[in-house]
Design a protein around this nucleic acid. Structure first.
Length: 328
DNA sequence: CCCGTCACGGTTGAT
DNA sequence: GAATCAACCGTGACG
């Protein structure tokens, strides 16, 4: 029901708003990574952004591993590994050596580079192919001409979830998109220290450097969101404007200034984050995690109106991504 | 106190 | 078009 979406989502222990089952908006994810790069500890990021520490940990871990702040691809099925190309090769192996075993075929597929470890068919899959599709080699030409898959994938060796699987030195991007510069990807360093600086493998990074990297990331992801919406996870909250959201979230206020369902943590760390984009606009308000448009407006105009505004925008955004409207 | 991990209830999209 | 399935999500609790 896109007319009646979860208006505010749910509120977590930190007072942040989230939509169960849906990823945090890119703006929040981006902010998490940016704060981590600035040396803010995950626990403090969690409090500042009112996102559970488990989530912060997960996002940072993924960023460290893949270089991407984007969530994984939700829903859908894994692409079939037994593509026509793979079947063709299996048939070839079987023709050359009728006594070949399925496991040998599997090894050869890997050795010949037909498949990689991500899309290598299981032995049982190969057996099934041998049984169902190549059982009678005399019919192979018939298969060749007419029994193609209804929607054959353009390539045979695209690893599943390849959009979010990045090498360490260079971040892979969707086809046609510019490559993320190497310095945007984090090194695979995972020291024992719990310090985010150590976790991210950054000895020293200036705020200017961070901003520069951030801007590049924003530009890239804006382009990605606009150009290839199909290939990226269609996050309800992910429009270009979403990047203003996290920057406008009022900082976490310790219980001395705000009654929060979450009590008991130190207030000393909220001052770690400074800068013009992090200044409180008004009093406390629920973190607009489920909203993606210009919430900075909303948070300047009072809580009640803000909530209504967020709700309306949330509806609109859901409509956008559910195909009710064309993307602007 | 901080962090990593996991169960849980939820959403999503291909089949 | 509905059901199913397997992917993902963030939260909250635990160690």
């Amino acid at each position: 029901m896109w007319f009646n979406p979860p208006a505010f989502g749910e509120v977590n222990q930190l007072g942040g708003v989230f939509v169960n089952g849906r990823p945090l908006p890119n703006a929040i994810r981006l902010r998490i990574v940016e704060l981590a790069q600035l040396g803010i500890r995950p626990c403090d990021i969690s409090r500042q952004l009112r996102v559970s520490h488990g989530c912060v940990s997960k996002i940072l871990a993924r960023y460290n591993e893949t270089g991407s702040i984007l969530p994984g691809a939700i829903g859908g099925s894994k692409p079939r590994v037994t593509t026509p190309t793979v079947v063709k090769h299996i048939r070839t192996y079987k023709q050359r050596d009728p006594g070949i075993f399925a496991w040998e075929i599997r090894d050869r597929l890997l050795a010949d580079g037909v498949c990689d470890k991500f899309n290598l068919p299981s032995v049982s899959s190969i057996s099934r192919i041998l049984r169902n599709k190549i059982g009678n080699l005399s019919q192979q030409s018939q298969y060749e001409s007419g029994k193609q898959a209804p929607h054959p994938p353009p390539q045979a060796t695209i690893p599943y979830n390849h959009l979010y699987s990045y090498p360490t030195s260079k971040v892979q991007t969707p086809p046609g998109m510019p490559t993320i510069p190497g310095h945007m990807a984090m090194h695979r360093i995972w020291p024992s220290s719990h310090s985010v600086t150590d976790i991210l493998g950054i000895r020293s990074i200036t705020e200017q450097q961070s901003k520069h990297a951030l801007n590049e990331l924003i530009s890239l992801q804006r382009a990605v969101n606009g150009i290839d919406k199909q290939h990226l996870q269609p996050n309800t909250e992910y429009t270009a404007n979403s990047y203003a959201t996290a920057l406008s979230i009022p900082p976490y206020h310790p219980p001395t200034t705000r009654v929060s369902p979450c009590t008991g943590y130190s207030a000393t760390t909220s001052a770690c984050v400074t800068g013009p984009t992090w200044r409180p606009v008004s009093g406390s308000a629920p973190s607009p995690h489920n909203c993606d448009v210009d919430t900075s407006r909303a948070f300047r105009s009072g809580t009640a109106d803000s909530i209504h505004y967020i709700s309306s925008l949330s509806s609109f955004c859901q409509a956008l991504t559910s195909g009710k409207f064309a993307v602007l």
